[in-house]
């Protein structure tokens, strides 16, 4: 069967195999979010019937949607991959970072420290990320094989040329590469794949009813880690999540889309980008993502 995804799947699978061939210790970042789920499925398909020749890692802020953590654990056991958890709580307990406090505190930025420490601890030299270039303007600029110096830093003004799909992963001790096999996928492509190949996702990607309060026009879910802001009104609303990240900075969107087909229809006519609609962290500044990426963020 030929589909619109053919060229994309071929490209992604080729990238994943290339990393397995050229790097000593790759790892795939797996949060249970839809992009990382698609990436893991592609990795399974890249090596089938052999097993995926690298582990997966979750950088866990401890502030999760329960449904996502349950899904994460079920998914890795079904796929037969090893899960490593890098814990932000452990970084806090060991004094590497200070926990954030205050009314709008989010541990999201703290993940960078835990991520870099986990990479160093396990001596990973290639780290697969599910980021897509259509998500955000700094990501639109990044190479598929993206070099990180020994401080984990990205230098956007001095990226290596990357031609013809020949990837250069040469690096020195202590440096590593971030690898983005889904670079050329759009949100719609991701959902098309999920629909065509019947990919299981955490339930919160589909419409459900939950307590919601509004913050800066975004719909925030009330959880154990996110009490409603003072003065805000909590309503039970029908929502779904377009992205799934740390529960304190990921917003929901109002939606009644209960199936993949519904979501594809909604995505095709969406007027707001995925991150614009749902990520408090991206609203901070004009170059928020670029600045975070420079210091080693996903």
């Amino acid at each position: 069967m030929k589909t619109s995804l053919d060229g994309l799947i071929d490209e992604s699978v080729t990238i994943i195999r290339e990393v397995a061939a050229e790097f000593e210790r790759p790892v795939l970042l797996f949060s249970g979010g839809k992009d990382s789920v698609v990436m893991l499925h592609l990795a399974v398909r890249a090596f089938a019937p052999a097993r995926v020749p690298f582990p997966v890692m979750h950088i866990d802020t401890g502030h999760n949607f329960l449904e996502v953590i349950e899904f994460r654990d079920r998914c890795v056991s079904e796929m037969g991959v090893q899960l490593i958890v890098g814990s932000v709580q452990a970084s806090i307990d060991s004094g590497k970072v200070a926990d954030v406090t205050g009314p709008r505190a989010s541990r999201n930025p703290l993940q960078t420290v835990t991520l870099l420490d986990s990479i160093a601890e396990h001596r990973f030299d290639a780290v697969f990320g599910g980021a897509r270039r259509d998500e955000e303007r700094a990501r639109a600029k990044e190479r598929v094989f993206s070099h990180r110096d020994s401080f984990g830093q990205w230098d956007p003004k001095n990226q290596r040329p990357e031609l013809w799909g020949i990837y250069n992963g040469r690096h020195r001790q202590g440096e590593h590469f971030r690898i983005f096999p889904l670079s050329n996928w759009t949100e719609l492509d991701i959902w098309t794949f999920i629909g065509e190949y019947n990919i299981d996702l955490p339930s919160i990607y589909y419409a459900h009813t939950r307590p919601i309060f509004k913050r800066d026009n975004m719909l925030m879910a009330v959880t154990d880690f996110l009490p409603p802001d003072e003065g805000s009104v909590v309503e039970h609303m029908q929502v779904r999540f377009r992205t799934v990240g740390d529960a304190t900075c990921t917003a929901a969107v109002s939606s009644s889309a209960a199936t993949v087909e519904d979501i594809i229809a909604e995505t095709a006519v969406a007027r707001v980008t995925e991150r614009g609609a749902t990520r408090a962290d991206d609203r901070m500044s004009e170059a928020g993502m670029e600045d975070r990426k420079r210091t080693g963020y996903f």
Binding site: S4, R133, D134, E136, R137, A138, A140, K141, P156, K157, Q159, S183, N184, T186, L188, E286, A287, E290, D291
Partner: peptide, 28 residues
């Protein structure tokens, strides 16, 4: 829309390639 890096916006020029995606009913 495509000049997404801080330095590009400051200088008003493109420094590195930006990738963009769009589709019409005929092609993506």
């Amino acid at each position: 829309l495509t000049d997404g890096l801080r330095a590009e916006r400051e200088q008003g020029i493109t420094i590195d390639v930006a990738y963009r995606y769009f589709a019409t009913p005929k092609r993506s």
